[in-house]
Computed example of a mutant assay.
Amino acid sequence: MRTTDLSELAAFDAVARHRSFRRAGEERGVTASAISHAVSNLETRVGIRLLNRTTRSVSLTDAGGMLLAQLSPAFGKIGSALDALNQFRDTPFGKVRINAPNSVAPFVLGPVIGGLIARNPNLELEIVATDRLVDIVEEGFDAGIRLGESLRDGMTAVKINPRLRFAVVGSPAYFQRRPVPTSPADLQDHVCIRNMYPTSARYPWSFSRGGQEIDFEPTGPLALHDHELMIEAALAGIALAYVWEDRAQPLVDSGRLIRCLEHWIEPEDWLYLYYPTRKHMSAGLRAVIDAMRAGSPDRSR
């Protein structure tokens, strides 16, 4: 088989999995038009339409579905064969695509990126940070990072560091107008930002102490899903914010924000790096996992 044939098959495989020329192009590192051209060449060569295209969607024909069923295992074996060559290299080689929540990526991935690349100069790390809940298989990621509560079935999950924690913060100017709360019940008398997911679903401010658990639902005038905006609103003295501790700590240390209710907030559920159970784990992904598990106090999972 010619190299161009294999490239065209790989382009078709990407489009068929993503149901999108744009996403396929992003995965392959080329333009959507290049992917479209490759698939059209393949269809011309085999003399059969493999994809149904409209301005809004892409779907498989019966012939395309049959070809994809045969190609997917084959490309999996090719990937495994190429990855096996890592045993003859000093370090892993190739691209690893990781999806992580935008709000936690700096604290989870930021501290390990430098050392990971330095130890593995042939590793290409591609990180997409978004708080949107992503299907890592459909969107071509090797792995994702999420709290345990949002993991899907069919995924292998590996516990990673750090274990994150929330903090309630407000500006000195805000607390000149209102007393610092000492218990979650005091928040009823405060202006509090409502936390949202990108879907607009809201989540409560969660507190726990001495076996007592309290979920507080803010009713303030401001609802946000971006922690950076929450911090800016808190700095402006508009309201109290419930944000990741690591994001707020430098501002607390500098005196620009004041933290409260610290003894009422416990660490969140563990973060996990997860990947499809049936997918071969590359040496590059294993290097990422090892870096993110380093120093974990609990290696039971």
Rank of each mutant, 00 (worst) to 15 (best):
R2I: 04
A10N: 01
A10T: 00
F12D: 11
A16F: 10
R17A: 05
H18G: 01
R19G: 01
R19T: 10
R23V: 03
A24K: 08
E27Q: 06
E27P: 09
G29C: 13
G29I: 04
V30R: 05
S36V: 01
V39A: 01
V39C: 05
V39T: 03
E43L: 09
E43I: 00
T44Y: 01
R45Q: 00
G47L: 02
I48G: 00
N52D: 05
S57A: 10
T61A: 09
T61R: 07
T61L: 00
G64E: 02
M66Q: 14
L67C: 07
Q70H: 10
Q70L: 14
P73V: 09
G76T: 06
K77N: 07
I78T: 03
I78M: 04
L85D: 13
F88W: 14
R89D: 07
D90I: 08
D90F: 00
T91F: 08
P92T: 06
R97N: 02
I98A: 02
N99I: 12
A100W: 11
N102S: 14
V104S: 07
V104G: 03
V112K: 11
I113C: 06
G115S: 09
N120K: 08
N120C: 10
E126V: 10
E126M: 03
V128G: 13
A129R: 01
D131G: 01
R132S: 14
G144T: 04
G144D: 07
M155W: 07
T156R: 14
K159D: 13
K159C: 13
R163Q: 15
A167G: 00
V168H: 03
G170V: 01
S171T: 12
S171M: 04
P172D: 08
Q176E: 15
Q176S: 10
Q176L: 07
R178H: 06
P179C: 08
S183I: 04
S183F: 10
P184D: 02
P184S: 11
D186A: 07
H190M: 06
C192Q: 02
R194Q: 11
M196G: 01
R202Q: 04
R202L: 02
P204A: 11
S208I: 13
R209H: 14
R209Y: 04
Q212I: 15
D215C: 04
F216V: 09
F216A: 04
G220Q: 12
P221A: 10
P221I: 11
L224Q: 10
D226C: 02
I231T: 00
A234V: 07
A236C: 11
I238F: 06
I238M: 07
L240M: 07
L240N: 03
A248H: 11
Q249G: 07
Q249W: 06
P250Y: 03
P250W: 00
L251G: 04
L251I: 09
R256G: 01
L257C: 02
E262A: 03
H263M: 12
W264H: 03
W264G: 03
I265L: 10
Y274H: 07
T277C: 13
T277G: 08
T277Y: 02
A283S: 15
G284P: 05
L285E: 06
R286W: 13
D290Q: 05
A294K: 14
A294R: 15
A294W: 11
G295L: 05
P297L: 11
D298L: 13
R299D: 05
S300M: 10
S300R: 14
